[in-house]
């Protein structure tokens, strides 16, 4: 078992072996979660604080459940409503929380790099639950676990990530992770939703959906934010659905056993056809949610082990 990180801030600093370590341990937690008694004790005695500066239901619930199942004391802080409104800076908030001696800090923030900044100022382990359009590492890990279980491997697969790549932290973390594990990654979407310099990421870029999905093993759809639909980045919702929405017709280009993924929440009829999303033979969207809890349990377990193994003064 090899995992040398103090924080989980992104996929970028992870070694492929560390990724496999998380996924292997997560498999163990999948079994635990499916059992009658779902209690572990990897985090017992530890305090986990969830700080969400951006609204979240599923990710926050998933982290909360993961912590509770492993015996941590979990506290949720709805940061949109709190002291930030009173003008307190991010760093002051972090220092205040730090004084309460948490062991695990789960942070989501609307600005890229904010979680890195926070991690420099506290002496607990920090997990990035999404920062701006930078990274969302646990989402990429749960996607990886889902793919590995469905396809039996996590290498030499052809994977298409479709939709709003430019604003997506999920896309960035997935591009990095799937690249590290030696897969072929294709990006499909309108050029207005592609980040600059994307060709240098070691990915193939397609503007035509049918061409981009040809013979892929995995189709990963991304959520399109409502505020991007009205003429700013794409002309309209219906034109987007026509050209880039995943329906049975477009999916025919992929391999017959290709799986369909979506990080949720879905916009049915915008980026994905409802029938595809519910097709139990193709869609693994519900499984992704299940894997999310297991992967977060594994990540927090590994970070807690490093936390306990480290000499105290190093953290001061």
């Amino acid at each position: 078992m090899s995992f040398g990180q103090r924080h989980l801030l992104g996929i970028e600093p992870l070694h492929p072996v560390e990724i496999s370590t998380i996924l292997d341990l997560a498999e163990h937690y999948v079994s635990l979660n499916r059992g009658a008694s779902k209690h572990g004790d990897a985090l017992s005695g530890l305090t986990q604080i969830n700080m969400f500066f951006e609204a979240s239901t599923r990710t926050q619930a998933s982290f909360e459940l993961a912590g509770k199942r492993l015996g941590a004391d979990v506290m949720n802080m709805a940061m949109q409503a709190s002291s930030l409104k009173k003008g307190e800076t991010l760093i002051d908030t972090a220092l205040t929380l730090n004084a309460m001696h948490p062991d695990l800090l789960v942070v989501r923030h609307p600005h890229s790099g904010a979680v890195d900044l926070l991690a420099q100022k506290v002496n607990c382990a920090v997990l990035n639950a999404g920062d701006g359009r930078h990274e969302h590492p646990t989402q990429a890990l749960l996607d990886a676990l889902t793919i590995r279980r469905a396809k039996g491997r996590l290498h030499r697969l052809s994977i298409a990530i479709c939709g709003d790549i430019a604003h997506s932290r999920v896309a960035r973390s997935n591009i990095l992770l799937l690249g590290k594990m030696e897969n072929r990654v294709r990006l499909v979407g309108p050029p207005t939703l592609m980040p600059a310099g994307i060709a240098e990421f070691g990915v193939e870029v397609y503007e035509d959906m049918a061409e981009g999905l040809r013979d892929v093993d995995v189709v990963m759809m991304l959520r399109l934010q409502k505020e991007r639909m009205d003429g700013g980045f794409i002309p309209s919702e219906r034109e987007y659905y026509h050209r880039y929405g995943l329906d049975a017709e477009k999916l025919r280009a992929a391999k017959p056993d290709a799986i369909v993924m979506h990080p949720g929440p879905m916009n049915r009829g915008v980026e994905i056809d409802g029938e595809i999303a519910d097709d139990i033979n193709r869609s693994v969207i519900q499984e992704q949610v299940e894997m999310g809890v297991a992967v977060r349990m594994a990540a927090m377990d590994l970070l807690a082990r490093n936390l306990r193994a480290a000499p105290k003064e190093v953290w001061a």
């Binding site: 970028e12 790099g113 920062d131 960035r172 980040p195 600059a196 310099g197 990421f201």
Partner: peptide, 15 residues
Amino acid sequence: TSGKFASLRGLPGVS
């Protein structure tokens, strides 16, 4: 400045 670095870091870029 928009480009690979800004995209990797998730920072809004200008051409």
